[in-house]
């Protein structure tokens, strides 16, 4: 089979993947991603500090708090599982709860797949690990404006890198600051408040509100079940109820019944 025309000297190996832009274009795209993220920094820093403080004040050792923050890199999943870990709930319940908190990333991952498929595998996995809520929103918004942008993955990398760096610095700062803060201030409650700020916007539409009501009620009613197994039941019931409401609304919107 005929090989394509021999590549110019500057290309070390023939690569059939689409171009990811010149070095200059990639640097500019990375910087643009960094710049676009800057307005989000105050909230990110507050969130990181609170998570760091909560990890230590809930009773993890310094090493555990650092290890948790660095490996899990997931504020809401960390804060959600923290009381479960400290309370000695079975591992399965802890991991299932973390999975529920992280499931939204499966959707993000599906949304990113199309435009990042040309990135080499190892780098793609690194981008995946770096994925955060705000970064995905910024990237997808930028993509709408310019879908064919060759250096788009460098933009994603820029957004994700600021998020990663600032998150870890503020979370570690919170972990070390926690030692100086008296335990009875109850600062771990700040973690709960941060989760409330995430939950409220999810309740503004009907399916989310139903998921919240059902999951909260069952979660409360099953508090005394062994091993917090009621947590898993509550989450699954909440999701199922939201899906049912969603489908019912869709059917109703589709037109009058025959």
């Amino acid at each position: 089979m005929a090989t394509p025309a021999s590549p110019p000297m500057s290309m070390p190996s023939p690569d059939l993947r689409p171009s990811r832009g010149t070095a200059d274009e990639r640097r500019a795209a990375f910087r643009e991603g960094v710049r676009d993220y800057l307005p989000m920094l105050p909230a990110l820093i507050a969130w990181g500090l609170v998570t760091g403080v909560a990890l230590v004040q809930s009773g993890l050792t310094l090493a555990q708090a650092i290890g948790f923050s660095v490996t899990a890199f997931a504020a809401s999943a960390q804060l959600a599982t923290l009381p479960l870990i400290v309370g000695g709930v079975p591992l399965t319940v802890i991991v299932l709860t973390a999975l529920m908190m992280n499931l939204r990333f499966v959707i993000y991952s599906a949304a990113l797949k199309g435009s990042l498929q040309h990135v080499p595998f190892g780098r793609r996995m690194w981008y995946g690990y770096l994925t955060g809520d705000m970064g995905v929103v910024l990237y997808l918004k930028r993509m709408q404006r310019d879908p064919g942008w060759a250096a788009r993955d460098a933009y994603f990398h820029g957004v994700a890198t600021v998020n990663f760096a600032v998150w870890h610095v503020s979370s570690l700062a919170g972990i070390f600051a926690a030692a100086w803060i008296p335990r009875d201030w109850g600062l771990e409650f700040a973690g709960t408040v941060a989760l409330i700020a995430l939950l409220v916007p999810l309740c503004t539409r009907l399916p989310g509100a139903v998921a919240t009501a059902i999951a909260a009620t069952i979660g409360w009613a099953t508090l005394h079940w062994p091993a917090r197994l009621g947590l898993v039941v509550a989450i699954v019931a909440g999701i199922a109820a939201a899906v049912l409401v969603d489908r019912w609304r869709e059917r109703r919107a589709a037109g009058p019944r025959r």
């Binding site: 009381p83 529920m100 499931l103 959707i107 999810l202 969603d246």
Partner: peptide
């Protein structure tokens, strides 16, 4: 996909409210 969309709300509510 629809179910995944509501997982965070359900998980947050089941944890935070009780």
């Amino acid at each position: 996909e629809r179910g995944l969309r509501y997982a965070p709300a359900a998980a947050l509510a089941a944890l935070v409210v009780p």
